[in-house]
Each structure stands twice: as structure tokens, then as C-alpha cells.
Design a protein around this nucleic acid. Structure first.
Length: 875
DNA sequence: GCGGACTGCTTACCT
DNA sequence: ACAGGTAAGCAGTCCGCG
């Protein structure tokens, strides 16, 4: 297959002219130096029989070159490979080479190596341009130190790309794929089953060559087997005398009392500091089959865990970057007298790494908003370990009644073990779904393992773009180049104050109950728009006079008719291969469970990237930020939904609601649906699909707020207060009781009985409230503190008021549980409130407004439901 | 001095 | 550290009120 003849040499000839073998060929040992972990170096070349998966590239300062790390699935070890292609860091200047050669500051720079001319394609101007390539001995000489080469130039291109990413792009490497070394070169040896390759290729027969090239490049990423890399989760507990304060990893003042190690090879260990002041307690149920090892000295315990780090190619933690590994490092170095070289941990700028293998902090991965929303449909709302495992695995952390530092040793061990176990399981459940997802995202973004799990979607997409630029010989524009070429003015005005441009539209709902509602939506609307309308930073407001007539509706922007835009090309390909192959085939039983599962994860990974594409063009910190692209995308989106609604109305269909990319149709006939779909396909070139069919939908006049009941009786609740996570539990419960009632409604007449049952629910709820039969926990509003307590300067929201009454540190992200009380200050955290302080009047209002949202839609008056007299009585 | 109208801040949600 | 749009509740401000 194509990828097995990776055109490295060809690449170097066209884009990377290299001095022809002036240097003596290195001896094999030097070229293929692999290291067995534990510092025992062995020669284990990456041969065809010994091929290994590329996991990362980094710059090795000692050796002065790029170092790649591979996972060998046979010995489960990490192997190192050092660059032998004489690749060096570089950047570009637009100053002619002769002139630059005279600049002695540059040619005399201590890191200066060479200077060359380079022909590059300038996409913004749509022309080729002569650039001067300045090559340096080390990355810091290009940038990152004072007086670096990029600072000596009036303007430098491609000077801000971290060297390891640069190396990956230039050698066209794909982390996550299988490599061997032949003829002293890294060679991708991934193979794709011929049959599948042929079938997919057929689907792309009509596509232009550029797309076919992407296909050849892309298929191995999606189809090659994903290694189930041996990995261990670790979790540490610190014995602190302070009950409420979480130990500070920077200080690491208290001993590490317990460490759990739970690994994919079946390893189950607990390392315990045998503290004689502590009660031992009894062995817990979940510790069966776990090896519990006692240490008299903390130093020995730490030494043991450092040893363990070397036994596994990948160490998993949950928040290890900010806590566990940082704590271990500082504890070992500053309190236990370890030498730096005895600690296998490196504190890097943005994360904590391991010297010889990999540290994956799952907290950072699950905290990624795109992962949370697109991969896991926002099943977890907060990203603490408990919330995530509860949502994904159905398992929770062990609940403890007393502070951790007061627990008997074996209870602590049990608690710690569970944390390790669920951390590992997060990567293992559903046939390693999360692990496979990570590996696929690595391949698609071409980012190393440690980067892809920590960086956001903008960085994934940035790297994917840069990779394609380098591969095609396109000059990567600087942010200011894009700004200058496109202007900074938006041509639309946002509805929300402080936003940069206008977004989607939401159709005013037609209030009331509507039976037999069909919801149609445009499949990945924004990605489709970007593809179909050729939107990209270089094509929107392109330099050609003749394209200026090609206006995007509702804006002053135009789009290129001459060149295919890179964004549209890439996203179009990713979208098409997902829709045409992976999504349908993931449901194809004939392929067998394993393949189906792989395809499911692939389409999930693609969805993640695809959905984020539009957003990054509107994000100022994205290096290819281009407001006109984002603005054109939403403008076309508005145009498309508006046209569709117009058409539907002309066809006599009643459109009762719509939001961004969806239209709610009341009781349309099948032929009407078909006609509308065909019209969209033919006129707008975007596919309109049936998303869901409701038995009935209840709409109020509020947007983004509705209730739909499916034929099966299950209820879809959108935006209603009763479902929001800060709503007190007693109210959520009453609300869901009402939902149960509504799910049984089949025809209009059923609302009569429903109404009576709802009346009972509301009355019971209000009665229990009046008699204070609810607990403080049930009455608590649970609101997240998104920032540090002191940062609330402008106003003091209630949850902040409550948090301040706690008189302790409250970490950003934590949930404050508070109740509303009579008199000042109006709220109290449940920790210090008592039931007789409750302000029932305020709660009554909350009950009313929650129910009113639904009753409004059913055209039922809240007063009538509980009876006006009751309301008076209540007060 | 106080309440209503208004704006702004904050959170949680929708697409 | 991907976007904008909407709802709700409260905090804070301004204005009128002989």
C-alpha cells in the first residue's frame, strides 16, 4: 500500500534539499539506538520483525537532535530512536538571501548553521514566493531565548512552531502508526486490507485528485490496528494533619501514605506507609486479590513507585500533572533527599512528564470541552473523577464519612485502590474505547501522545493544518498576515454584547402542544457549509478581482472560485469519509464486532475534529484565526435554514420551531418530507435528514426550551429549569414526576387526567415544603464556582456569598451547595444552615417558575392548578 | 428612603 | 482556552416621588 513507500527521499528533494551524504554514514548502533528502560541499553533495531508504534517526538538537548519514542508491542518497552537525517530547526525570512548573508548578527549567531533559498506557495496572495530559509543548530536559537534568530529578523515565518511538531511534519510522521527502519530511514509499515481500501476508494472515485491524495494518506490512520498499550494507573494519598485543606503539591509537606497501582496486565498493588499512629482497620471487600505492601520508611515507598514507573510504558493518572506526580517529585527532591537523577519525573512547562516513558493525565483529556461534548455528549457535567466515572462507567469513588487523614490504614488503601482502578477503567471500558479514541486523535492530528491528551482542539487542528501546509510546500501565514489580507472588520453585528459577529438564528416557537412532530436537521451543517462553499482563510476575501462578485449572503465577503481552499478540502474529506463509510459501517453486523467497534471509534474521533473546525476560525488565539471565515459560515447557516423554512411554508407545512440547523414540522406527510429533503439537496447542496419523531412536543414562547415525547414514551427535555443541575433535588424530583405523567399522554384528551395528576404533584411538593419535610440536601441549590473566590469583584452572586461564609479555600470548579434562608444574608451553605431558617416563600417561587415553564406550554395556569386560595393559605 | 425599571453579571443550557 | 444565542435569577444603579 502507498504508505509503505513513504516518499521521504522524494520529499526531501522537492521541499527539503539536503546535502548529499557528505557525512560518513553512521554505524548502525548509532543510527538505531534503542534503549531498554532501566538504563540498560540494548540493540534492538526497529526491523520488519520488530516494528514499533511511534508515540512521540521531542527535542533531545543532550544529543542535539530529535528523539522519537516507540512502543514495541512484543516486549512492551519504549524504544528510542534519534534523528539521522540531519534535520535542523529553521524559520523563513522574506529578505533576499544575498542581503541576509550580509547580516552578521544572523550569520554570526552562535546557533546559525546555514542559509538557503526556498520556494513557497503563498496562499493568501495566491502566488509563489521566494523565501530565505535560516537553519539553526538548535530550536532555542530560532526562538525562545533572548537574541534568538527570529528576534533579529524584522519578520519571521514558521518560527513559532515547537521543534518536535516541525520534525513530525517535515518527515511526514504519524504518531500512533507502526514503523520500522529500512535503509536507515523510518518507514511506516502500516498496511490496510486491500478489500476495504478498494471499497472506500470507489466511494471517492468522483472526487478530485487532492481528495484522493488525502484518502491515501488517511486510510492507514483510520484502518490500522490500534495497540492496546500496557499501562498502569496510579493514585497517591497524602497523610495530612489538616482536615479540610488539600495538601499543596508545591510544598509537599506531608508524607505520602498510600499509592495504588492498577495495570492493564493484571497488576494490582497497594503501597502503604506503615504508620504506627494509625489504626489498621479491616481489609475491605474491593481489595481481594490485591497485593498490599507495607513500608516502614516513606523513602522506600517512593523508591518503589519510581521503580514501578519503569515497568510500564504508560502511566495513567487523574490530575497527575497538578497533583500526584508533582507531589511525588517535590516530596522526593525536597523532603526525602533524592537526587534529581534518581527521580524519573520531569517537570515541564505545561505538564509533568516521565523520563523514559509516558504520563497521560486523563483529567486533562476529559476536561477538554470538545471531548466532553462531542465524544461523550456532555454525559458528565463536571470533570472530577467521580462525576466522569459515574457517567461513563456507572462506578463511583468510595464515599468516606471522615477526612481521609483520619481513616484507618486499610480504609485509606481501599479508597486509594478504587481511584486507581477506575482511572484505569476509564481507558478500558467498552473495549478500550477511550484509549482507541486517544490513539486515533493522535494519528489524525499528528500530535504526540503527551500533547494530544493535554491540548485542546485548536491545537489538534492547528497541527493538522500545519502538517498539510508543510507537505504541500505552502508557507504558513503569520496571524498578522491573515489579518492584513482580510481586514479586521466584521460585516455583521452580534446579538450578544461583546461577541464579534452574528451567529445562528433561533426561530420563535409556536406555543402550545403539537402532535406528530418531525424534526429534520442538516447533517453537520457548518462543516458542510465550509466544504460546499469552499470557505478557508485563503479563499474568503481572496485576492482575485473576478471572485468579488461571489458574495456570501448577508455579508460583504466573497469567496474564491479559482482555488480549492485547504479548510474545505480537509474538513470535506473528513466529513465525507465519516458519513460515507465509518458511520454506516459501524452498524454493519457482517464486519464482526471488532471491526464495528473500531469503526465506531473512528467516526467518533472524526466527529470530534469536524465539529470543532468552524469554532477555531472564530477563536482569536487560533493562529489561523480568520473572522470572515467564521462569519461567512454562520451567515450561510442562517441563509440555509431561512430558505428551508420559507420553502416548507410554501409547501404548506407548518414549521413550529427551529434552532441553528433544525426545523420542527407539525404533522408533515411523508411526501412533503421527501420533497423538502430533495429541494435542500438540489438547491442548497446540503443534506437534510430526519433527526427525530415526537408523539407530541410542548412549546412555550421560550426559545431553547421544550419538551418532546417520543412514540416510545421516553421524554426529551431541553433547557427546562427542572433539568438543570443547580436546581434543588426536591424540585428536580417533582419535575421528573411530572415528566412521567406527561410521557403517558397519547392524545389531547389525556391532558385532562394529566392535569389532575400534576396538580397532586405540585400540591404535595408545596405541602412538604411548608411543613419543612425536606432535608437541607434536598433543598440545596448546587452552583458551580467557575473562578477563584476573590475574583468576584463586580457582583456577589449567591453561591459566592455562601462560599464566603464557609471561611475556607474553595477551588475553582467546585460546587457550592446552599439554601435560601430568612433574613440576612439570604443564603447559607448547607454545612452551617439549619432547617428552621429556610425561607419557604423563596422556594415556593422556585417551584412555581419551574413548573410554569411546562404548564405554559400546556396552556395551564399555575394558579388554577393549585387553587388561588391555596396560594394565599401558603403565604 | 424606597420601589420599580433598567442594565450587567453569572451560570447553565442549546445548536 | 473552538463559536454565538437564550433563559433565569440576582446584584447593582438610576430615577422619580411634591
Amino acid at each position: 500500500m502507498g504508505a509503505s513507500q513513504l516518499p521521504l527521499d522524494q520529499f526531501f528533494e522537492t521541499h527539503e534539499p539536503r546535502k548529499k551524504k557528505e557525512k560518513p554514514i553512521k554505524k548502525e548502533e548509532e543510527i538505531i539506538k534503542t534503549e531498554k528502560i532501566n538504563d540498560v541499553e540494548v540493540k534492538a533495531p526497529l526491523t520488519a520483525e520488530n516494528a514499533a508504534y511511534l508515540l512521540s517526538v521531542e527535542y533531545n538537548g543532550k544529543k542535539g537532535c530529535a528523539a522519537a519514542r516507540f512502543y514495541n508491542p512484543r516486549d512492551h518497552l519504549i524504544h528510542f530512536w534519534y534523528d539521522n537525517s540531519e534535520h535542523h530547526p529553521y524559520c523563513f525570512s522574506n529578505i533576499p538571501i544575498e542581503e541576509l548573508k550580509k547580516n552578521t548578527k544572523i550569520t554570526g549567531h552562535r546557533g546559525f548553521l546555514d542559509i538557503q533559498t526556498a520556494e513557497k506557495q503563498d496562499l493568501l496572495q495566491d502566488r509563489t514566493t521566494q523565501m530565505t530559509k535560516i537553519i539553526a543548530k538548535d530550536p532555542l536559537s530560532i526562538g525562545g531565548t533572548t537574541g534568538a534568530i527570529r528576534e533579529l529578523l524584522p519578520a519571521a515565518w514558521e518560527a513559532n512552531i515547537p521543534y518536535h511538531k516541525c520534525y513530525i511534519a517535515d518527515l511526514e510522521l504519524t504518531p500512533g502508526l507502526l514503523y520500522e527502519v529500512t535503509d536507515e530511514r523510518l518507514k511506516n509499515v502500516t498496511t490496510v486490507p486491500e478489500k476495504i481500501k478498494d471499497e472506500i476508494s470507489r466511494l471517492f472515485e468522483e472526487e478530485p485528485n487532492e481528495v484522493k491524495e488525502l484518502l491515501v494518506e488517511g486510510l492507514p490512520l483510520f484502518l490500522s490496528p490500534i495497540p492496546d498499550i500496557k499501562r498502569a494507573a496510579i493514585d497517591i494519598e497524602v497523610i495530612s494533619p489538616f482536615v479540610d485543606a488539600i495538601p499543596r503539591p508545591e510544598q509537599a509537606n506531608f508524607p505520602v501514605g498510600c499509592i495504588s497501582i492498577v495495570a492493564s496486565d493484571g497488576t494490582k498493588r497497594i503501597l502503604l506507609l506503615d504508620n504506627k499512629d494509625f489504626e489498621r482497620g479491616e481489609i475491605q471487600e474491593n481489595l481481594e486479590g490485591v497485593s498490599i505492601e507495607y513500608f516502614n520508611e516513606e523513602k522506600e515507598l517512593i523508591r518503589e513507585i519510581f521503580q514501578v514507573f519503569d515497568e510500564f510504558p504508560v502511566i495513567l493518572t487523574y490530575n497527575g500533572d497538578k497533583f500526584d506526580l508533582l507531589y511525588l517529585y517535590n516530596r522526593a527532591l525536597n523532603h526525602l533527599g533524592f537526587r534529581r537523577d534518581e527521580i524519573p519525573i520531569i517537570i515541564r512547562k505545561d505538564f509533568v512528564a516521565l523520563v523514559r516513558n509516558f504520563h497521560v493525565d486523563l483529567y486533562r483529556f476529559f476536561n477538554n470541552r470538545a471531548v466532553q461534548i462531542y465524544a461523550f455528549s456532555a454525559k458528565y457535567k463536571t470533570t472530577d473523577l467521580n462525576a466522569v466515572t459515574k457517567a461513563l462507567l456507572g462506578i463511583e469513588k468510595i464515599k468516606v464519612e471522615q477526612p481521609l487523614s483520619k481513616l484507618p490504614l486499610l480504609d485509606l488503601a481501599s479508597y486509594c485502590y478504587r481511584d486507581g482502578e477506575i482511572t484505569l477503567d476509564l481507558t478500558r471500558y467498552s473495549q478500550n474505547l477511550v484509549w482507541k479514541l486517544i490513539m486515533l486523535l493522535m494519528r489524525i492530528s499528528h500530535l504526540p501522545l503527551e500533547d494530544v491528551t493535554r491540548q485542546g482542539v485548536s491545537s489538534w487542528i492547528q497541527n493538522l493544518f500545519y502538517y498539510e501546509h508543510r507537505k504541500k510546500g505552502f508557507l504558513i501565514p503569520r496571524p498578522e498576515d491573515i489579518k492584513e489580507a482580510k481586514g479586521e472588520e466584521a460585516s455583521t453585528q452580534a446579538i450578544i454584547k461583546g461577541k464579534k459577529y452574528k451567529g445562528a438564528i433561533v426561530i420563535d416557537p409556536v406555543p402550545g402542544v403539537h402532535f406528530d412532530v418531525v424534526v429534520l436537521d442538516f447533517a453537520s451543517l457548518y462543516p458542510s457549509i465550509i466544504k460546499v462553499h469552499n470557505l478557508s482563510y485563503e479563499t474568503v476575501r481572496c485576492p482575485h478581482e473576478e471572485c468579488k462578485q461571489n458574495i456570501i449572503p448577508d455579508t460583504d465577503h466573497w469567496v474564491c472560485k479559482k482555488q480549492r481552499g485547504l479548510a474545505g478540502l480537509i474538513i470535506g474529506f473528513l466529513r465525507d469519509i465519516r458519513l460515507k463509510w465509518f458511520k454506516p459501517q459501524s452498524k454493519n453486523r457482517i464486519l464482526g464486532k471488532e471491526t464495528q467497534e473500531l469503526f465506531y471509534v473512528v467516526q467518533q474521533a472524526l466527529k470530534l475534529i469536524i465539529n470543532a473546525f468552524y469554532g477555531v476560525f472564530g477563536a482569536e488565539h487560533f493562529p489561523l484565526y480568520c473572522l470572515p471565515v467564521a462569519e461567512s459560515t454562520t451567515a450561510l447557516g442562517r441563509h440555509i435554514i431561512t430558505q428551508t423554512i420559507e420553502k416548507a411554508k410554501n409547501m404548506g407545512i407548518s414549521v413550529i420551531y427551529g434552532d441553528t440547523d433544525s426545523v420542527f414540522l407539525e404533522n408533515p406527510s411523508e411526501s412533503q418530507i421527501e420533497d423538502l429533503k430533495r429541494w435542500c439537496q438540489e438547491t442548497l447542496e446540503i443534506d437534510l435528514d430526519i433527526d427525530k419523531v415526537y408523539r407530541y412536543v410542548a412549546l412555550s414562547e421560550r426559545k431553547k426550551n421544550y419538551l418532546g415525547v417520543y412514540g416510545s414514551g421516553s421524554v426529551d427535555i431541553k433547557g427546562l429549569t427542572g433539568k438543570k443541575r443547580h436546581t434543588p433535588l426536591f424540585l428536580q424530583d417533582a419535575f421528573f414526576e411530572m415528566m412521567d405523567v406527561l410521557s403517558e399522554v397519547k392524545v389531547q384528551d389525556d391532558f385532562e387526567t394529566a392535569r389532575n395528576r400534576i396538580r397532586t404533584i405540585v400540591k404535595t411538593c408545596l405541602d412538604k415544603l411548608k411543613n419543612l419535610e425536606y432535608s437541607l440536601e434536598e433543598l440545596a441549590f448546587r452552583v458551580q464556582m467557575t473562578r477563584h473566590l476573590k475574583s468576584y469583584q463586580k457582583t456577589t452572586p449567591q453561591h459566592v456569598k455562601a462560599a464566603r461564609l464557609l471561611e475556607r479555600d474553595v477551588e475553582p470548579g467546585s460546587i457550592i451547595s446552599f439554601v435560601k434562608i430568612k433574613g440576612e444574608p439570604g443564603v447559607k451553605p448547607i454545612e452551617i444552615a439549619s432547617i428552621d431558617e429556610i425561607d419557604t416563600e423563596k422556594y415556593k417561587n422556585a417551584v412555581e417558575s419551574t413548573f410554569v415553564q411546562v404548564l405554559d406550554a400546556l396552556n395551564i395556569d399555575f394558579g388554577s392548578i393549585i387553587g388561588i386560595r391555596r396560594l394565599d393559605l401558603f403565604m
